[in-house]
């Protein structure tokens, strides 16, 4: 299995009808598949995937850039988790290409993490089970996620929030270039959720890795997001959080109430770009990260 450099079918192999002639947003269409952005950490072009006769991904283009927090939102069944799995190389797409920066180390926080009590495992051991690490590094990543005292505890004894931190610590081993978090807040309360996103934002600032964050709720993540991609099997809209929240497609997917509620959460940002500057062309034009201190 060559999970680290997946090259699927060539984009031009996609049938002509796949170039979105039925796409509800022709103005966002980039036409034929774009070339890969050489600077992207992980980039995908024209991903198509059908499972059991159900189209799950329909021509998805996405790029994760260095240093940015890219949030993927979308309703249930929009294909968010499938897209993440395809980007990670866990599932091959039917069509489309995925390109990874050579030598990229990926830190992954899966959606569901159930501890198997049959396996005796300390937190420290769990953290370095995927990528080997010296004791100093294990201590450092545990301290980074605020779990400095958990190293000797059994994994099976952790609370939901502690377990979340342990999984995040494991993702940080080996200085990853990109962190992929699939709804990392399941099973922790609202305060824990906000705290986790703040933590991810801080780590990103300190370490400069790119982040792909999957969320079902734009409001709680928007303060930490540089760019938002709204997915509903295809990319509906993308851009800075404010512009996505005001996009008609977002209101259609999440309901007018969600769009109104958004105003309550609205933070002030000094971003200069708008949706027009971010039309499904993730070719690295959006470099908003430097604006966020």
């Amino acid at each position: 299995m060559d999970a680290h450099n997946v090259q699927g079918d060539l984009p031009q192999l996609a049938p002509a009808r796949h170039t979105h002639d039925h796409h509800p947003h022709p103005e966002l269409d980039a036409g034929p598949p774009l070339a890969h952005d050489a600077d992207a950490l992980i980039g995908a072009r024209s991903l198509w995937l059908t499972r059991s006769g159900r189209a799950i991904l329909q021509g998805v283009d996405i790029d994760i850039s260095s240093g940015e927090i890219l949030t993927l939102i979308g309703p249930n069944g929009a294909g968010k988790t499938t897209l993440v799995r395809v980007l990670l190389g866990l599932e091959p797409p039917d069509q489309g290409t995925i390109q990874r920066k050579p030598g990229l180390i990926v830190g992954y926080v899966p959606q569901r993490f159930e501890v198997d009590r049959a396996i005796p495992l300390t937190v420290a051991r769990f953290v370095e089970l995927g990528r080997r690490a010296e004791p100093e590094e294990i201590e450092r990543v545990l301290a980074d996620v605020g779990a400095g005292k958990l190293g000797d505890r059994q994994l099976s004894e952790l609370s939901g929030g502690e377990l979340q931190r342990a999984v995040l610590a494991r993702a940080l081993i080996g200085s990853p270039g990109v962190l992929v978090l699939d709804e990392p807040v399941r099973g922790i309360d609202y305060a824990g959720e906000a705290e986790l996103y703040t933590l991810i934002g801080r780590l990103r600032s300190e370490r400069g890795f790119g982040v792909l964050l999957v969320s079902h709720d734009l409001h709680v993540v928007m303060a930490q997001s540089d760019r938002v991609v709204c997915l509903n099997r295809h990319v509906c809209c993308s851009g800075v959080p404010e512009s996505v929240a005001q996009h008609p497609e977002y209101a259609r997917l999440f309901g007018a109430q969600a769009a109104r509620a958004f105003a309550l959460y609205h933070h002030h940002h000094d971003h200069r770009h708008d949706l027009a500057g971010e039309p499904q062309s993730p070719a690295g034009t959006d470099r908003s990260t430097s604006e966020r201190a």
Binding site: L88, V106, Y108, P110
Partner: peptide
Amino acid sequence: LLSLSVHEDLAAAEGTQVER
């Protein structure tokens, strides 16, 4: 083997040759 027994997808995403 231990890593994929703890969490198979996580091990695979980290580059473990799961099937092998």
